[in-house]
């Protein structure tokens, strides 16, 4: 455990808290992509099957349970809550997210640390997480204005993987750890946010409302 890793996980948790606060207090999920949230449920379920096979950890186990519970809660709100579901921008959430799942599954089938059920699903979850933000970014681009909570949510979600990159650099030098699969996927995942980061920081510096061109 190092500071980058701890900060990354807390940032990830914070992003989810921001999203839940937005949904619960404003009773609105405007600007949030249900497709991205669906993908996160799939990511967490396929990655955290090891909850059943690995010994409990005081740090990892609670995080895994929280990520599973909160992602399912968010999807539940967006689909079934009688007020929240009416605020969902269904017509703008146009990304064909099913087309992300098959390529990630094929990639996981061929590129994995070990050809076992758990390891292939783990690889699948790493690949899918890398691209799961795409429907959300497409939805934001079609939004004329993005509320602060939504902007902060996406920023924290991007910052989390960027901090993992620092963690991996640290671990490479301090612990001699080399793990190509999460590194490359994590690099792709962070790179997808580059455009968003640029406009987020620009709007923050100019004290303007966030808008993606």
């Amino acid at each position: 455990m190092n500071a980058f890793r701890l900060l990354a996980d807390l940032t990830h948790l914070l992003s989810i808290i921001i999203l839940l606060v937005k949904i619960r207090t404003t009773k609105s999920c405007a600007g949030i992509s249900l497709k991205t949230q669906d993908l996160y449920v799939l990511v967490f379920i396929s990655r955290y099957l090891d909850l059943f096979t690995r010994p409990l950890s005081l740090y990892n186990t609670p995080f895994k349970l929280v990520f599973l519970a909160t992602s399912i809660t968010i999807v539940y709100y967006m689909r079934y809550h009688k007020v929240v579901k009416q605020t969902y921008n269904k017509d703008s959430d146009t990304f064909k997210h099913y087309f992300l799942i098959l390529p990630c599954a094929v990639l996981a089938f061929f590129i994995n640390p070990k050809f076992t059920f758990i390891e292939v699903l783990w690889s699948f979850s790493i690949y899918l997480e890398a691209v799961a933000i795409l429907p959300q970014l497409v939805l934001l681009q079609s939004s004329s204005n993005i509320d602060n909570l939504t902007g902060n949510y996406v920023f924290m979600l991007g910052a989390y993987r960027a901090l993992y990159l620092l963690n991996w650099i640290y671990r490479f030098f301090a612990e001699d750890v080399v793990r190509w699969i999460p590194w490359i996927a994590g690099l792709v995942q962070t790179a997808l946010y580059a455009d968003f980061f640029y406009y987020y920081i620009k709007s923050w510096r100019n004290n303007e409302r966030l808008k993606l061109p």
Binding site: R5, N60, K64, V177
Partner: peptide, 10 residues
């Protein structure tokens, strides 16, 4: 350098 997956991360 280990070749096992990074299972100690989230």
């Amino acid at each position: 350098a280990g070749s096992s997956p990074l299972k100690d991360e989230l």
